[in-house]
Write a protein that binds this DNA or RNA. Structure first.
Length: 306
DNA sequence: TTCCAGGCCCATG
DNA sequence: CATGGGCATGGA
């Protein structure tokens, strides 16, 4: 590993660092009181802050590696132009259009989303921290100790009991461990999903223990820059139902999936992430709970606005 | 206390 | 192919 210290002053456009790191695609970055972000780009610690359109900081990652990880080269104007122009996406883009999808290391992203099943975002971050501290490597930098994500071999050798009870993985532990074993043993090509046709890449990932369609789509989107991948979690499914099928009961999961696959286009993953973050921030859906009356939805949001 | 969380797996129609 | 129950843990 290199230990050269790099300093950063990188100009950006249409970009919000904090929004990107907080949007539920990555779980180990921590914001200090002074607004600085601590995290790792792969195994390299990085300290970052944003001042206007400039990213400032230092770390052991090269500027090129950092810019690649943060996907500063994504053509955001083109991407946003290619999204459907319905009012829900417009609202989401107005709220968090400066959010950027990352290019995360494949194994780190895959393992993290295996551990994410039926967990709140804050829990996923806790689990990630446990795993890093217990099975990763310590890397000191600038007076702080960082922890790399554990390798497949390290997790394959971790006792399942430790994963369950110490890392608090519960029933996810055998999934993570089994997939780690396959990858540590060379039984899966982590580079393949980057270039395979999307359905084949998804199918390959789904063969791994603990990986279903949703986790596979998250990894394709957040690690393999397959920007058309559209993960459907409980939030997105609820949002698609309420926003795009208002007043319709008994919309099946298959209809939701087919709609998402056909409607959002080649940058559907961006649409998904904007909707997800907007929705989770409570800005898109009607309040849930007994007070809500489903008959109050009046607008037919299924027709594109413009 | 109860409900739910960026689901997956397996057993049934 | 679609649906339902089970599964651990911890916030709200």
């Amino acid at each position: 590993m290199t230990d050269a210290v790099h300093q950063y002053a990188i100009s950006t456009e249409h970009y919000d660092l904090g929004l990107s790191l907080r949007s539920g695609q990555v779980f180990h970055w921590q914001e200090a009181d002074d607004g600085q972000w601590r995290g790792l780009v792969g195994d390299a610690p990085v300290l970052l802050r944003q001042e206007g359109d400039v990213l400032i900081g230092r770390g052991l990652a090269t500027p090129e590696a950092l810019a690649h990880y943060l996907a500063l080269d994504h053509p955001m104007r083109r991407i946003l132009r290619k999204l459907p122009r319905d009012r829900h996406l417009r609202a989401a883009a107005a709220y968090c259009g400066q959010l950027r999808l990352l290019r995360q290391p494949a194994w780190e992203c895959l393992a993290t989303f295996i551990t994410s099943a039926v967990k709140q975002v804050s829990h996923i971050a806790q689990i990630s921290g446990h795993l890093r501290r217990a099975y990763g490597q310590s890397v000191p930098f600038a007076g702080h100790t960082y922890h790399t994500y554990p390798t497949p071999a390290a997790l394959a050798e971790a006792p399942e009991r430790d994963l369950r009870e110490h890392a608090r993985l519960g029933w996810r532990a055998p999934h993570l461990r089994a997939t780690a074993e396959i990858i540590a043993g060379g039984g899966f090509d982590l580079a393949a999903p980057r270039t395979l046709p999307l359905p084949e890449a998804r199918k390959a990932l789904c063969a791994l223990p603990g990986v279903g369609e949703k986790v596979a789509n998250c990894v394709l989107l957040f690690a393999y820059e397959r920007l058309e991948a559209f993960p459907v979690d409980v939030w997105i499914e609820r949002m698609l139902r309420e926003l795009y099928f208002p007043g319709r009961d008994h919309v099946t999961a298959g209809e939701i999936r087919d709609f998402a696959a056909g409607y959002f286009g080649p940058y559907g993953g961006y649409a998904q992430q904007l909707l997800f973050h907007h929705g989770r921030a409570g800005r898109a859906l009607a309040p849930r709970g007994p007070a809500r009356k489903k008959s109050t939805v009046i607008v037919d949001a299924n027709s594109p606005m413009e």
